[in-house]
Amino acid sequence: ITNRILSRYVNAMAVTFKESIKFFKNNDKCVVTGNPIRNRFEFLNREESLKFFEIDENSKNIFSFGGSNGSEELNKAVLGILEKFYKNEKISLIHVTGKLNYDKFLEEVKSKGIKIENNVKILPYMTEMDKAYGVSDLVITSSGAITLAEISKIGLASILIPKAYTTENHQEFNARAYKDIGASELILEKELNSDLLWENIEKIIFDNSRLEQMKENAKKLATPNAVKDFVSIFYDEFKGR
């Protein structure tokens, strides 16, 4: 809503997705630049990342997180699939609960008699996102614009769970753009449960051909020149003034 109001007064608008353009009345001002992302994602070292998380080099690795504050719905779904990892050492999980949910999550793990094994890492928060991405074969997360820009730049397969409460449901629109190109699987938050989550994980992580194709499709949505294109708007608008 704020963006729509401001759009009346600006000379140009940089947008992340071409699908965003239709939401502006004066959309002739829109320029698709994509989202600039941090330089730390430019060069990822898988070997170094494996050592950091103490994960076997032959493992297929899943990184799940529900945004910076975590997701209670995702935590519940992950709790129900932990035993799948304990029965298969060829796959590993790094799950971020969110700081506020961490103690509750561990209490529920303990109450269910689940033992935390070496191929499962449960963390309250992730500061080393570059290493987490560097070790990942499959990412499970919500579909905020910055996160999508990061996984596209790196080229990661994903299962996207858009947050249901976002303005005009924009995260679902983001996620569908990735699903439509074959870069992601989509699970709506209201439909999320352990069985559905595992079903989606299983059909991706154990299918090398599909996994690699999803990674390549993710790269198709990358905008490596986002910074340059964004800055060029200023030059184009104000040169000669």
Rank of each mutant, 00 (worst) to 15 (best):
F53Y: 15
S49Q: 04
T141M: 11
A157N: 10
D229L: 05
E89F: 01
L82R: 10
M126T: 12
T141Q: 09
R38K: 13
E191N: 15
L123R: 07
T16F: 03
G155F: 04
M214Q: 07
K51D: 06
S71Y: 02
F53C: 09
I159W: 03
K60A: 10
S71K: 02
E237M: 12
N58K: 14
A218S: 15
R176T: 13
E47Y: 07
G182R: 10
N200A: 10
S143N: 04
R176M: 14
I21E: 10
I5V: 04
A157P: 05
N118M: 06
T33H: 05
H170A: 03
D103K: 14
E212W: 03
K87V: 05
V15S: 11
V120T: 11
N118S: 13
E117Q: 09
D229P: 00
I91C: 03
K25V: 01
S158K: 07
F238E: 04
E168P: 01
N3Q: 14
K215G: 09
L188V: 00
E19S: 12
N3V: 00
V120D: 11
G240P: 02
L148C: 08
T97C: 15
N39K: 12
A12D: 05
N11K: 15
I204S: 13
E202P: 01
N208R: 09
A222F: 04
N174W: 02
D195N: 15
L160G: 03
T166Y: 04
T223H: 15
N88Q: 02
K90H: 01
R241V: 08
N69F: 06
D130M: 13
D195V: 08
S59F: 03
K219F: 01
S194N: 01
L82K: 09
S136C: 12
A157G: 00
N217H: 08
V96A: 11
K18F: 03
I187K: 12
K90I: 05
L82Q: 09
G134Q: 00
A12S: 12
D130K: 14
K87L: 06
K76D: 07
T223C: 12
I201M: 03
E42S: 14
H170Q: 07
Y235I: 10
N35K: 03
P162A: 06
L192A: 01
N35R: 11
G80I: 02
G34A: 06
F105E: 13
A157Y: 08
K25S: 07
D28Q: 13
E107V: 00
I1C: 08
F23R: 09
E42C: 07
I146H: 08
W198C: 01
